[in-house]
Design a protein around this nucleic acid. Structure first.
Length: 510
RNA sequence: CGGGGAGUGGCGCAGCCUGGUAGCGCACCUGUUUUGGGUACAGGGGGUCGCAGGUUCAAAUCCUGUCUCCCCGACCA
């Protein structure tokens, strides 16, 4: 039976257009008129705030403190780390003047107000934070330094997509300095684990954590680790990265200290971040043809009450009934926090309001009309299970007190169900039985949503690596990462036939 | 940055080729009707056509420049 969906387009028809329509229809964000910059609307920003709150707790529990560094970085700071500046030079926004003047009614940049030294709008803060580390660090007693900041950064990308790659984006960037390589590597991996757990547990977004190949490293890093999520079209999304920077930045920026013997030593540093890109990941992990499905832990509202108002005097009594239920629900605890409830009092047809909450992806929607209040009931809609088998909307009437008691469990069920669904999809779409390049080519030609392929490889460097990258590129493929928990391969290198060093995941990527 | 497409009331579009100062659907407002599932009818408000310049008696329509968005490519912690 043909069922009408809330979105104008389905994932099957056109995944990219579907993604755009979720963002529009769920009121997550919109274009701003400035290239690659978006306005985040309350529902979209509310999800980001939840991500911030919950991740911030974990960052602090892991021993870091928050602080804030300036948006502008003197151009000269970038000159110090050669690889780093090479990596970012092509995408930096630069401030060169500090004043406008009126020229025949038009505002123009005042050429007399040129800055002595141009200021870069930070694309990331290693350089400015490194300069601070150099000041802060004198003695071995000052280590480790473990800080984090929540900030916006700007990268002038050629091609932008809402949430996935915007010119300006919001993120957290952690920066640490340690006395030993061992400690710094441990920190890098601790954060990788933190990101991976956060993604699975809070976002319900399954990921593969592992090390990026050399060619995908952060500019200036000795090692880059990532969590890679699989979108519903089978493409990979690099959802978070953790970098071991070795002594590259500390040597370039003179981040050093005197050890117990009085000798000068350079510190070992790390940096790591996740961004608003996570929201793009959540959309493409949990969204369906009726819009977004927000995992309860990050839903700004977990239960939305839609009263069936009729613009008549009896509305007052209905609203009072709903307000009481909202009050009672708000006293419930779920995931260790107070339940978040919204009573949607906006005038308008209940059915319109319901579909708007469906599209936004509120986990539980309660529709409450006169018949419900008379029977002390509520009508419950689960966003993760909208339809019955016959294609009709699945609504279930419950006593309101029963619902209030059951709500925390229902929300936990939804959280787990979304995660499990996505986890199964991830696992089902990693192929490890492809053994030749021709097969690989055929595989991605045949399957629209092919997912990833796991192969053994010899991990060459230099031109050997370059060749592999080029061959993969011809199929629009990239190496994602080497899964942390992968075994040692007992088969030859997929690309060269030499002895293999490790397994690596290959896929198309955002 | 290269190739393609597009910018017309809040949204989606027609008009542009063959210049003559805007039209449709949805949304919105008012009224009536209806109402446990995205009600129906009637009436109404709102735009000078992305921006700038040019051609012309006259420009949404032609020309030039520019900005933004979408798709493909290159690029991409």
């Amino acid at each position: 039976m043909s069922k009408k969906n809330a979105l104008p387009i389905t994932r099957e028809q056109d995944f990219a257009a579907w993604y755009q329509s979720v963002i529009t229809e769920a009121d997550l964000a919109e274009e701003s008129g400035v290239r690659g910059c978006m306005v985040m609307r309350p529902w979209g920003y509310g999800i980001w705030e939840r991500v911030q709150q919950l991740l911030d707790i974990r960052i602090k529990e892991a021993g870091h403190e928050n602080c804030y560094f300036p948006l502008f970085i003197p151009l000269s700071y970038f000159a110090k780390e050669a690889e780093h500046v090479d990596g970012f030079a092509k995408e930096m926004a630069v401030v060169t003047h500090h004043r406008l003047k009126s020229d025949g009614g038009n505002l123009v940049v005042d050429p007399d107000a040129k800055l002595e030294e141009p200021l870069v709008v930070r694309p990331t803060s290693e350089t400015v934070i490194g300069a601070a580390f150099a000041r802060w660090l004198q003695s071995w007693r000052d280590l480790p330094i473990m800080i984090n900041q929540w900030a916006n950064v700007v990268r002038w990308e050629m091609r932008t997509r809402m949430f996935l790659r915007t010119s300006e984006f919001l993120w957290q960037e952690g920066h640490t300095a340690h006395a030993t390589k061992k400690e710094a590597v441990e920190e890098t991996l601790t954060i990788l684990k933190m990101y991976s757990d956060f993604s699975e547990e809070v976002l319900g977004m399954p990921v593969i954590a592992g090390e990026k190949p050399e060619n995908e490293r952060f500019p200036g890093a000795d090692a880059t680790y990532s969590i890679e999520a699989m979108m519903q079209d089978g493409k990979a999304l690099q959802a978070g990265t953790s970098h071991y920077l070795g002594q590259n930045f500390s040597k370039a920026q003179n981040i050093r200290y005197q050890d117990r013997e009085g000798e000068f030593q350079h510190a070992y540093t790390t940096s790591w971040g996740v961004s608003t890109r996570l929201i793009g990941g959540v959309i493409m992990t949990h969204g369906d043809d009726d819009g977004l499905r927000v995992p309860p832990q990050i839903a700004p509202y977990q239960v939305v009450i839609v009263p069936m108002l009729r613009d008549k005097p009896e509305d007052d009594a209905l609203l009072e009934y709903c307000a009481n239920i909202a009050k009672s629900l708000k006293q419930q605890t779920v995931f260790g926090e107070k339940l978040r409830v919204q009573l949607d009092k906006k005038p308008g047809r209940a059915s319109n309001k319901r579909w708007s909450w469906v599209k936004k992806g509120a986990p539980l929607i309660l529709e409450i009309g006169g018949r419900d209040s008379a029977g002390e009931q509520v009508t419950v809609i689960r966003r993760d299970a909208l339809y019955q088998e016959n294609g009709k909307l699945d609504t279930k009437a419950m006593g309101w007190q029963d619902f209030a008691e059951a709500a925390p469990q229902l929300l936990e069920d939804i959280q787990h169900k979304l995660h499990r669904e996505a986890r199964e999809r991830l696992e089902a779409n990693i192929s490890s039985d492809i053994k030749s390049f021709d097969e690989l080519s055929e595989f991605y030609k045949k399957n629209k949503y092919a997912g990833w392929v796991k192969v053994a490889w010899s991990k060459p460097t230099g031109s050997g690596l370059e060749q592999i990258v080029e061959r993969l590129k011809s199929l629009k493929l990239t190496m994602r990462n080497t899964p942390e928990d992968a075994d040692q391969p007992d088969e030859p290198c997929f690309f060269t036939g030499d002895a293999a060093a490790e397994y690596i995941l290959i896929g198309r990527a955002y």
